[in-house]
Design a protein around this nucleic acid. Structure first.
Length: 916
RNA sequence: GGGCGAGUAGCUUAGCGGUAGAGCGCCUCGCUUACACCGAGGAGGUCCCAGGUUCGAAUCCUGGCUCGCCCACCA
């Protein structure tokens, strides 16, 4: 092969866009119907067109790309469906603000012109999020890109509405809904976010209509007093029993209202008397309706006092609150005012305080669909990861309420209902009916409202595939496999997709819901762009130069399912950047040593493989199995950690170093000690007995093949998490095929697992660490070659030669002949034990004191552990109740430590003797 | 008011019934021909608290404490 010298440094900013373009060009992201292959489908949680890529979205999207890329390599026909959401309120707000800056109002601009403006805005800035998704390396099928207001998708939304309307599940009604006075639209229950605020509780006296003290009520909302129609008390409340049935006077308006009894009143709150305002409070509305009380309204759609409120007319609700309170105070009817902390509902889009408001809206009855969805979850047809989320969603489904689906906006799917201006009949149809089916009238007006954005995204899993048409795509790709998302939209989106999927497709839209943890900053707070506590993905990738791979890996390695959130900071991305550099340099090393290597040559014979080769192959077999299993179990963080440890600690720190030893031993010119040992083999080559001896070339080639194979296949395992670096590395190495993206996922070679080699290398690592530690303790320069002797302490160790060879090289020492018991006379030694043998380092006289120190310290450290073991093994309870293998292990450990203790004492004693 | 999750080394965390692990940070060495975005060695932990179960608990149970999130029509 040709050896390409790699650049010394890896620059993701150059590499990443280059490979993304190549993949796009090759069409690897695109999935076509192919009955011969099994589909694997993930729906990208559609970002808003108003959006820019946020760390939160990156943390839920990246796991999806990992899964998609992994399955694609496994041979699945992988489809990751992308698209964007028109985001009704959010988008309308953006353009509305723009228009306001120009000094115009919505009404002045008009519906048609306004929508034109929004489309213009969308064309101008809507592509940002897509470019950013591409920069992250996401392998979405861009050819299938869908926008929720695309004509076909629009049609599907209308179809869904019309069918539900036809089934009687969508209906219109005048109800109390959550009203956002700023957006001037209804919103659903799920779009209300509760916030704690500091408020006051006013105690107001309502005098008796026929004299008498009347009753004192407590309220947070004095401005609604003007709409009061009753005062309610609990029927069992002794304090008010006499008052029930009498009338009291509402202050300011001097309206006589009844005192009623109702069980829903909490006698322990405030004074136990509740003012009833059916026009402005949900509970009051229910109580009022049960008691046949009238509904009075004093606040309009903007949250301002209505025209008939006299001196208060036109005041904003919060100003009115103060003004009404002071007017009542002037009458001497305020008993007291208490500070009060309470929670208020706010709009999840604009955070204005929600007003309970009675208006005409469209609702969707979800009870039947929710029951089906709950059944699908309970029966395991939809599984949640972590499973605890299933309970959370079930609780929502089991307590489902009607869904307010109409919005008083212009930007969105206009409700396909037409009302006859003569008879008032409402007809659902995609286009204006020619005449009214009831009265034949020809003037029909379309409903002015649009649908909740979440209504359109609820049909995403099948509407993107061509529904309502019976397309091949729909038949082949539905149902999908995984839906990955943050817990924040479990109800708003996930539950609704399950409900609507079952309803329209008679099947669940996906089988697995993967709930990713939320990213927090180091203080444990939300990452928020506006608060400046966020982390901008693009800034990390480009400006800071870490690259998308580093960001991806950093997020994946922390997205453990055991937690609902995790803390994240730039430093963590920098650490992964270092990991990338490590891989890059390892690749450079491998390439430098691949000269003369033929990737198409025959696999190495068992005897050609060195101990280190067998070890790393064994470790690779384990890691590939572990990574595959982790990905299958949605434990992506475990896969990332396993690869990090394997690459850095095992492949780089140990295997590459040992490969240097093996390569040197097989070099053409020089032959190291290891080779001299083998030299006897060469001499015997001529004899018939030794046909299985391998040549230097064979052994060299085996090392090269191992270096190449393990690196190349580790890159495949890592590719789903870090697509760019792995592609770049893979392309530099000898390879089959055009891209690692479409390379076959490594099947674990379980037959490579070699417990003997693993045990042997453990011995090497332990011995090397001991000698290195000794060097530091004794103050011996790292460059000085130590002379160590070998003392066998156990039975014959099969691979002793190789073990010692690696140990000597990695600890920068020279392994000399075996010594009996305590070594030659006249020399001083520090001894480090290994399994079955020990290493004696020759030291000069001046090092004796520090040698004694090291040995005594170890002797001391052994003490407590020895005591613990002795006590334990003397404990009758432990000996009789603990399982045999535990007892066995403890006993072996005791024997080992006792031997070491004796030996340390001997060595210390020997060091007492002055040298001759 | 319910429910869920978390509290392990300075920081971020793994482990979740048998001798407390990692990365970063810190200290001491070191440019040994892949890598100083590195290598070697090291210090650093009443595993939130109190009970209990067990031969044995960071790990299981009970009760606290502290944080975070979700749900809920207490004016």
């Amino acid at each position: 092969m040709t050896i390409n010298a790699l650049p010394k440094t890896y620059d993701p900013r150059e590499v990443e866009p280059r490979w993304y373009a190549a993949w796009l060009k090759a069409g690897y992201f695109h999935a076509n119907v192919d009955p011969a292959r099994t589909p694997y489908v993930i729906m990208l949680p559609l970002p808003n067109i108003t959006g820019v890529l946020h760390i939160g979205s990156v943390s839920t999207f990246t796991p999806q790309d990992v899964l998609i890329r992994w399955r694609r390599m496994q041979g699945y026909n992988a489809l990751w469906q992308p698209g964007t959401d028109h985001a009704g309120i959010a988008t309308q707000n953006v353009v509305e603000r723009e228009i306001a800056r120009e000094g115009q109002t919505l009404q002045q601009v008009g519906r048609e012109k306004f929508l034109e403006r929004v489309w213009q805005w969308k064309e101008y800035s809507g592509g940002t999020i897509d470019r950013q998704l591409k920069r992250m390396g996401y392998s979405c099928d861009w050819d299938r890109y869908v926008f929720t207001l695309d004509p076909e998708y629009y049609d599907a939304v209308l179809e869904a509405f019309i069918r539900l309307f036809g089934e009687g599940l969508i209906y219109r009604g005048k109800r109390m809904v959550n009203w956002c006075p700023r957006d001037q639209s209804a919103i659903s229950d799920l779009e209300v976010e509760y916030e704690d605020i500091d408020s006051s509780l006013w105690y107001v006296r309502y005098s008796g209509a026929h004299g008498g003290p009347g009753v004192v009520i407590a309220t947070q909302r004095p401005e609604t007093i003007l709409a009061d129609v009753a005062v309610a008390v609990h029927p069992d409340d002794e304090r008010y029993r006499a008052l029930v049935g009498s009338e009291v006077i509402v202050p300011l308006v001097n309206r006589r209202v009844p005192v009623i009894a109702d069980r829903r009143v909490d006698p322990s709150f405030g004074t136990g008397a509740l003012k009833i305002t059916p026009g402005h409070d949900l509970l009051d509305n229910e109580i009022g309706s049960d008691h046949n009380l009238p509904v009075l309204v004093v606040l309009d759609e903007r949250g301002a006092m209505t025209a008939d409120t006299g001196e208060f007319a036109g005041l904003d609700r919060f100003d009115a609150r103060e003004r009404v309170a002071s007017s009542i105070a002037a009458l001497g009817l305020i008993e007291k005012v208490e500070p009060y902390r309470t929670s208020v509902g706010t709009c999840d889009r604009c955070h204005a305080i929600i007003e309970p408001y009675i208006s005409d809206q469209w609702f969707c009855d979800m009870t039947g669909m929710a029951a089906r969805a709950a059944e699908a979850i309970r029966s395991g047809r939809v599984r949640f990861h972590h499973e605890r989320w299933a309970r959370v969603v079930l609780q929502f489904l089991d307590n489902i309420r009607p869904w307010t689906i109409s919005r008083q906006l212009w930007w969105g799917h206009r409700i396909p209902v037409w009302q006859c201006s003569s008879c008032g009949e409402r007809v659902a149809a995609k286009t204006a009916p020619a005449q009214c089916p009831v009265c034949g009238g020809t003037v029909l007006e379309q409903d002015p409202d649009v649908l909740d954005t979440w209504f359109s995204s609820g049909i995403w899993p099948f509407a993107t595939l061509g529904w309502p048409r019976e397309t091949p795509d729909l038949r082949y790709f539905y149902p999908g496999n995984v839906l990955a998302t943050d817990k924040g939209i479990l109800f708003l989106w996930v539950a609704r997709m399950i409900m609507l999927g079952l309803h329209f497709m008679d099947d669940v839209p996906f089988t697995d819901v993967y709930v990713t943890p939320t990213v927090l900053n180091l203080e444990g707070g939300r990452m928020s762009r506006s608060l400046g506590t966020g982390l901008d993905p693009l800034e990390m990738i480009e400006d800071r130069g870490y690259g998308a791979d580093a960001l991806r890996f950093a997020l994946i390695s922390r997205c453990s399912q055991s937690q609902q959130e995790f803390r994240f900071a730039e430093k963590m991305i920098a650490d992964v950047r270092n990991f990338n550099t490590k891989i890059w340099n390892a690749t450079r090393f491998v390439l430098l040593n691949l000269e003369g290597f033929d990737a198409d040559g025959p696999p190495p014979t068992a005897t050609a493989l060195s101990l280190a080769d067998r070890w790393i192959r064994s470790r690779f077999a384990r890691v590939s199995e572990a990574v595959t299993a982790s990905l299958g179990g949605f434990e992506l963080d475990k896969a990332a950690r396993a690869l990090y440890d394997f690459i850095w600690n095992e492949y780089c720190d140990w295997y590459l170093e040992m490969a240097k030893v093996d390569l040197q031993g097989t070099g053409n010119r020089e032959q190291g000690t290891a080779n001299r040992e083998r030299g006897t083999g060469n001499r015997e080559q001529g004899t018939a007995v030794d046909q299985r001896r391998t040549t230097n070339d064979e052994r060299r080639s085996a090392v090269q093949r191992t270096l190449w194979y393990v690196l190349s296949n580790t890159m495949k395992l890592l590719h789903p998490i870090m697509p760019f670096l792995t592609e770049e590395v893979w392309q530099q190495l000898p390879h089959d095929g055009d891209s690692i993206m479409v390379a076959a996922w490594p099947t674990p070679h379980l037959e490579w697992i070699d417990t003997q080699a693993e045990a042997d290398i453990e011995v090497v690592m332990d011995a090397v660490r001991r000698v290195r530690g000794q060097r530091v303790d004794l103050g011996i320069s790292p460059t000085q070659i130590l002379r160590i002797h070998l003392r066998q302490t156990g039975g014959g160790i099969p691979n002793l030669r190789e073990i010692v060879k690696y140990t000597a090289r990695l600890s920068r020492s020279e392994a000399l002949e075996e010594v009996p018991v305590a070594g030659p006379v006249g020399r001083r030694y520090v001894e480090e034990p290994a399994a079955g043998f020990s290493l004696l380092t020759e030291i000069e006289d001046k090092l004796v004191p520090s040698a004694r120190e090291r040995l005594s310290r170890e002797l001391q450290e052994i003490g407590p552990e020895l005591g613990r073991l002795e006590r334990r093994l003397a404990d009758q309870e432990f000996m009789t109740r603990a399982p045999a293998d535990v007892v066995q292990r403890e006993r072996a450990r005791l024997v080992e430590l006792q031997a070491r203790q004796r030996r340390l004492q001997e060595l210390l004693a020997a060091l007492e003797v002055p040298s001759p």
